[in-house]
Amino acid sequence: MTVPLRSRPVAWPRRVLHAVLIALALVFLLLFLVMPLATVFVEAFRQGVAPYLDSIRQPEALSAIKLTLLVAVLAVPLNVLFGIAAAWAMTRFQFRGKALLGALIDLPFSVSPVVSGLVYVLLFGAQGWFGPWLDSHGIKIIFAVPALVLATIFVTLPFVARELIPLMQAQGSEEEEAARVLGASAWQMFFRVTLPNIRWALLYGVLLCNARAMGEFGAVSVVSGHIRGLTTTMPLEVEMRYNEYEYVGAFAVASLLALLALVTLAVKSLLEWRYGDEIAAHAPGGH
């Protein structure tokens, strides 16, 4: 005889408490997350589908989209390289200044993005340290695409490394040592053992890194110079249009960014659900 399992009856004051807490959380979510997100789409389509599409098809919008993609395409792979190298150094070697490296990796999380942007202006700007030299060699960094990429790399630096370090720490280096003793070269060891073991965490880190790279505003705003069609990424384009009272246009571009966020969220949830144990338990902190 089996007795059907019943959950313990919850006393009704506790049930009320549950309901109140859940309701509170839902109201908060609705107010601060869902409504603003919905507003973006409502405003974007306020005058119908045609004006929406028109405002996206404008050359400034298209160039902003292209630039955003370009920045992401350059910044994300570089951050993957850096992230793997940094995680490798942090988890496989003992060296002086290891704690310092760990702190430095987190620096972009703790520094205001505006400051990160300003640093590059101070370094490469016309009055900056390397400004005159760059100028005399005809190299433009500030108020040009290179600065956008540099600032984005800086801001997104921790994402991949922070995702890999706890995982690689937990996995240890025994499998890699086993591969070496079995005759694998350094590359074979990396591609046949290390990479397969970190692939989902890596993808997760890339995803977060990409979302941030495309959405970054502060640092990019400082170094961009806001040259329409040349150095405005999508977030900057949104701001410029908004400031010019071009609401449909602003919200149309914003809706694309919001869409990116939703897709990121969906893929992220999928990864967490499917490969949760292979992804570091805590997503990178910060913004």
Binding site: E174, E175, V181, L182, N197
Partner: peptide, 19 residues
């Protein structure tokens, strides 16, 4: 180097390639 020593090693926690 390790890979040329013709050694078979069994690690404490086996270090099998999990994937």
């Amino acid at each position: 180097p390790a890979r040329e020593r013709r050694i078979g090693m069994v690690f404490q926690h086996y270090a099998l390639f999990r994937h």
